[in-house]
Every structure is written in structure tokens, then in C-alpha cells.
């Protein structure tokens, strides 16, 4: 057995060594691609948002001047405080933030509870429910969106915040994520708490939830991004500025008669800030949850 093992180990070392060179090339290449595809448009966006002449922005697009601004100005951001009017940047941002915070807040509670019960609850048919949840995950959001629009308009919920929050709180993906996280915690932890006299809810709240920071962070970020980028749904269910999120608002800047390229650029920059902040806030746990499972796996 050990005689056999030695050559394979050596072979592995050898192939690893020879693959280091090509690994390097792959790395460099992928960094280049990332730079071209992701970073350069971002940079372009940032530069464009600092130019005050919207015709100039268009004219610069096709050349290297897209990456250069001679006299930067923040005038495109002037409407950031507007809560009403044609360019109510402030309002759209606040709307998006309200929707994001409510969806993520409620989503963390609902999905983690569901995941916990599926992992540790004593309800009957747990396995069946779990496989249904997983089956639900394969259904794309877009395919249920039209019936959902009809449902909410019948219920008179259109053009509200609730209509943009409630449908997206419970999600099979996040339930499953929490389920997986909770299920891998040791059984003795649950039992020790049970013997200590904790109710199932108390075990969830005082033991398992505090231990699930990585899962909470991961779900916060994923849910936050999803909520922030909602586009199709809010277009269908909002008619006025009242609850309109920024992603939809940016699209309306490209009206038929006036194209606010300058404002759209600024709005896009603004739109990135909160979600970046969310990511940075949770990134430590987000990353560690992946590293942790990788190392253990």
C-alpha cells in the first residue's frame, strides 16, 4: 500500500511544479480580463459622472478621452438631495434603501428560521419540505412575475413599498443556505441547550443564530444585491416616484426627448455606494464563510 502511494505522491509534486508556470499565465490573463471587463467601465462611469456637459460625455465615449476629465465637477450630483421633482435622486436612493433594509432584515429572520426548523425541528415530512424548497429554487423569478403582478394589483398593492418587499423575503436559496449552515453544527449543541432548558425558539435565538454570522453575512450580501438590482418587478408595480427605486429611476433618465447622460452617470455612481458599503461591512464574514467551508470540506 505505502509502496504504491509513494510514486503517486512524487508524480503529484512534479505535476504541481510544472503547472506553476502555466498557473501564473492563467492568473495574469484573468486579471487582465477582469480589468478590461469590469474595472474599465467602472472607471469610465466615474470619470463621466464628473463631466458637466452631457453632449461631451457622448462624444468622448468612443475614444480614450472617456478615461480623462480635464475640469472635474460635482454638478451632476447636485440633485442628490432632491426628494421630489423630475430628478429626485435623493428620493430614489432612500426608496431603494428602505426596500433593501426591509427585505434583508425580514429575509434574515424568515429564511434563517425556516432553515433552522428544517435542520433541527421535529416537524413531520421535513425531508419532503426540504426537497420542495430545493425544487422551488430552479423556478426563475421571471416566470412567476406576471401572475404575481396580477395578484398584487387585484390586492390593490401596486405602487407601495410593501409590494416590493414582501414577495422577495422568503427565498428557497436562502432557506437552503441557512439549512445547510445549521445542519452542519453539532447535534450536541442542540441537545445541551435542550437539557439546559431552552425551548426550540430559544435555541435558535440564543445559540444557533449567534453562531451563524457567516451565513447571515452571506445572505445579507446576496439578498442586498438582489434587492438593490431589482428592475423588472418595480417597473411593473410602480407608477409614480412614491416608491420607485433608483435602478428604475436611472432608466427613466433616458427619456425620449432629453437624455440625461450626465445625471444617469452620477446616479449610477451613487447607486453603487450603498451596496459597496454593505459588502464591505459584511465582507469579513462573507469571505470567511467560504474559506471556512473550503478548509473543512
Amino acid at each position: 500500500m505505502s509502496d504504491l502511494a509513494i510514486p503517486t505522491v512524487q508524480a503529484k509534486v512534479k505535476s504541481e511544479r510544472s503547472s506553476i508556470g502555466s498557473l501564473h499565465m492563467v492568473q495574469t490573463a484573468s486579471i487582465l480580463v477582469i480589468a478590461l471587463v469590469i474595472v474599465s467601465p467602472l472607471f469610465m462611469l466615474l470619470i463621466a459622472s464628473l463631466k458637466d456637459d452631457r453632449f461631451q460625455i457622448l462624444a468622448d465615449m468612443g475614444s480614450f478621452r472617456a478615461f480623462w476629465v480635464s475640469s472635474p465637477t460635482l454638478s451632476n450630483f447636485a440633485e442628490i438631495g432632491n426628494l421630489s421633482g423630475e430628478l429626485a435622486f435623493g428620493r430614489y436612493l432612500v426608496n431603494s434603501l428602505i426596500i433593501l433594509a426591509s427585505t434583508v432584515g425580514a429575509g434574515l429572520i424568515v429564511n434563517s428560521m425556516a432553515g433552522f426548523v428544517l435542520a433541527w425541528g421535529s416537524l413531520r415530512g421535513r425531508a419532503l419540505i426540504l426537497s420542495l424548497v430545493i425544487a422551488l429554487y430552479v423556478i426563475p423569478q421571471e416566470s412567476i412575475i406576471m401572475p404575481l403582478v396580477i395578484m398584487v394589483s387585484r390586492a390593490g398593492m401596486t405602487d407601495t413599498f410593501a409590494v416590493q418587499i414582501v414577495p422577495w423575503i422568503a427565498s428557497p436559496l436562502y432557506i437552503f443556505l441557512f439549512y445547510q449552515f445549521f445542519a452542519q453544527l453539532p447535534k450536541e449543541l442542540f441537545e445541551a441547550a435542550e437539557i439546559d432548558g431552552a425551548s426550540v425558539f430559544r435555541i435558535y435565538r440564543s445559540i444557533f443564530l449567534p453562531l451563524s454570522l457567516p451565513a447571515l453575512a452571506t445572505v445579507s450580501i446576496l439578498m442586498g444585491i438582489e434587492s438593490w438590482n431589482q428592475y423588472l418587478w418595480p417597473i411593473l408595480v410602480t407608477q409614480t416616484d412614491y416608491a420607485r427605486p433608483i435602478a428604475v429611476a436611472i432608466a427613466t433618465f433616458f427619456g425620449q426627448d432629453s437624455i440625461y447622460w450626465d445625471r444617469a452617470m452620477a446616479a449610477s455612481v451613487l447607486m453603487m455606494i450603498p451596496i459597496l458599503a454593505l459588502y464591505l461591512a459584511f465582507q469579513r464574514w462573507f469571505v470567511s464563510s467560504f474559506v471556512g467551508s473550503a478548509v473543512k470540506g
Binding site: L189, E191, A192, E194, I195, I207, P210, L211
Partner: peptide, 19 residues
Amino acid sequence: APKERDIAMVFQSYALYPH
């Protein structure tokens, strides 16, 4: 139920609450 039995258990893995 376990909590009504007035017993205490020490587990092989200790099962201390990590946080």
C-alpha cells in the same frame, strides 16, 4: 421532556456554546 427531568449531561465533545 429533557428539561423537565432535572438532569445534567456532560457530552464527550463537551458541547460548550462557542460564542
